[in-house]
Write a protein that binds this DNA or RNA. Sequence first.
DNA 1: TAGTGGTCTAGACCACTAC
DNA 2: TAGTGGTCTAGACCACTAA
Lengths: 243, 243
Amino acid sequence: MNTEFATIDTRLPAYARLRDTLTARIARGDWTPETPIPSEARLAREFDVSVGTVRKAVDGLVGEGLLERRQGSGTFVRAPSFNASLFRFFPMRDSDGAPVSIPQSRMLRRTPTTAPAEAEAALGTADVIQISRLRCLTEQPVLFEEIYIPRNRFPGFETLPDTAFGPLLYPVYFEKFGTLVKRATDEVSFDRASPPVAAQLHINPGDPLAVIRRTAFDIEGTAVEWRIASGSAAGFRYRSEIN
Amino acid sequence: MNTEFATIDTRLPAYARLRDTLTARIARGDWTPETPIPSEARLAREFDVSVGTVRKAVDGLVGEGLLERRQGSGTFVRAPSFNASLFRFFPMRDSDGAPVSIPQSRMLRRTPTTAPAEAEAALGTADVIQISRLRCLTEQPVLFEEIYIPRNRFPGFETLPDTAFGPLLYPVYFEKFGTLVKRATDEVSFDRASPPVAAQLHINPGDPLAVIRRTAFDIEGTAVEWRIASGSAAGFRYRSEIN
DNA sequence: TAGTGGTCTAGACCACTAC
DNA sequence: TAGTGGTCTAGACCACTAA
């Protein structure tokens, strides 16, 4: 990636070039969330700008949620991932009001395929890998997900061993493919369960279904994943903040 | 409101005191969106701080969406209201794919009452005014809303003439009561239409319903409105950004 | 105590807008 | 051309953290 400080379009202000350079280094994984990035004074020397300019660049990344300042300690890369789990929209307590046990994910399939129209429109390519997952709470299937990721961005994803996957995919995207999911758009609607989806969720065909379509974007704003997730509409509650 | 610069807790940094002072003046309506606020240099003289400190205060308010800078022209108050209309989550096209015509609101009732438990929990008081509205697209009822606002904050709201209301309530809150809605939380769930709601929406009891519960907050973060809105689940699509 | 980020100053010059 | 915000500097001192 052509994002070294000196090579970035010099029509951009210094703080913007520095911000983009830092973004690239963060995305590349130069720093872990445990070790601080260089101090403001060091960065000022390294890039030959004033500390105030470094502060403005870092301020921008802090505002985006990529960095985190700790007075007296340093500035750190924030552990990735917003609270992205779709689980949180489904009931986490059983009928007695007792909290249900640990969420689990069962990977059903990973295959290269041609994307359906909606996924292609979101991702800008039809050359994708399809991932089917079933997510369960206390052995009960809660959420059925069909996920599409561009093949050129995740080469060999379908051949990874099953043991490479925990309950979340975004850490795998980051650690194995250097893709950091930064934000996403969700679209919630209601439908009736088709026979195959009903079979996966152990409900009856025609039962009301909550459907979440999500497009996820990386730091640069490129769409990197499209998914459609379905669960029983009973007890479903989608929460969101608007500003 | 005790928010003049000199009287604000001096343990706060200067830029924070200035920011809070400006917030109070904006909320009070000292400036319209058409006339610029005083220039950075003027504010620096008025509050006896440096221009850099003024910039930091203004930067914060720009980040919150309260102010807008225009290089060469000045800094302006942003016209209030995020894109808050719940309308946008319902189909805006009829079955032919043609855009439906202008959204309309019909005020059904405004009465002082005791808030239901959910509204009381959100607002911190049960002494409220209840507003019932029906929102229509091309004469078709689309959304039925029950809205609760604290009586002490909106005194006399129930006696305003019907002509005071356009399709949106938030401008009325601001212009008549000085309450600026800044953010809100939504919760989307699924239900079936009760007979009274079904009658309002011209659907059958038991039909699938999309339900949005919203709590709205003012600039200071105080809950100022709770509402529950219901519409047919068919064609409903709730969109949201997550970060 | 040394090093970090947090606040603040008092300038400078530039880019843009409106008159 | 005068006035605005946009960028940038080179300091100062403070508050906090960790060794």
